[in-house]
């Protein structure tokens, strides 16, 4: 099928983004933890104030990684995958986003909006595929991969921007 290279490339990129995101988040947490023990007062207060945001970012990143891994289970779970895994996962990630959007930053709000819209369209597409009986139709797979790439990229930029806001608050 002609769309297969596109789908494979997008999947590769998703995995690259998630691998880098998880790595950076873990490094970030280690750095924060170490700085908290060196007695740098300013950094210490920043971390103390934003501890919950950091923990939430780590949780959300690992959750997204787990979500991408669990995608492979969709073959075994069948149609129920979308209701048992996909919908709860999207809701949890969106909830964490909702907490972090309190930074009152326009960029974060835009990223949150795009993520939500892409996730909603993807869930709608899955439900459409389930009830229309068009399983495995190539264009649906390609569109789904594109939407998922959008979600993952929005999450990546959201996480990086949140980290920037947490550490460069004078720039905002």
């Amino acid at each position: 099928m002609i769309l297969y290279p596109l789908v494979l490339g997008i999947e590769f990129f998703q995995h690259v983004v998630v691998i880098v995101l998880v790595g950076v988040t873990i490094v970030e947490c280690i750095v924060c933890w170490k700085k908290a023990h060196t007695g740098d007062a300013r950094v210490d207060t920043v971390i103390q104030e934003n501890k919950r945001a950091h923990v939430l970012l780590l949780v959300a990143s690992l959750f997204l990684a787990a979500w991408i891994v669990v995608e492979y289970l969709s073959e075994y779970l069948g149609d129920w995958y979308h209701f048992l895994v996909h919908l709860p996962a999207a809701i949890v990630v969106a909830g964490i986003f909702w907490y972090l959007v309190r930074f009152k930053d326009l960029g974060l709000k835009i990223l949150f909006a795009v993520f939500s819209i892409a996730a909603l369209i993807q869930i709608g597409l899955d439900i459409f595929e389930m009830f229309s009986g068009m399983d495995g139709v190539p264009w649906i797979e390609a569109v789904r991969e594109l939407l998922q790439l959008t979600s993952v990229l929005m999450f990546y930029f959201f996480a990086v921007r949140s980290m920037n806001l947490l550490h460069h608050e004078e720039r905002t």
Partner: peptide
């Protein structure tokens, strides 16, 4: 190329994180 992509994105992320500009 997959590993190259990981390295490129890793460097970009560190630079964004360090400078605070994306």
């Amino acid at each position: 190329p997959f590993f190259a992509a990981i390295i490129a994105l890793w460097i970009a992320t560190l630079a964004m994180r360090r400078t605070g500009i994306m």
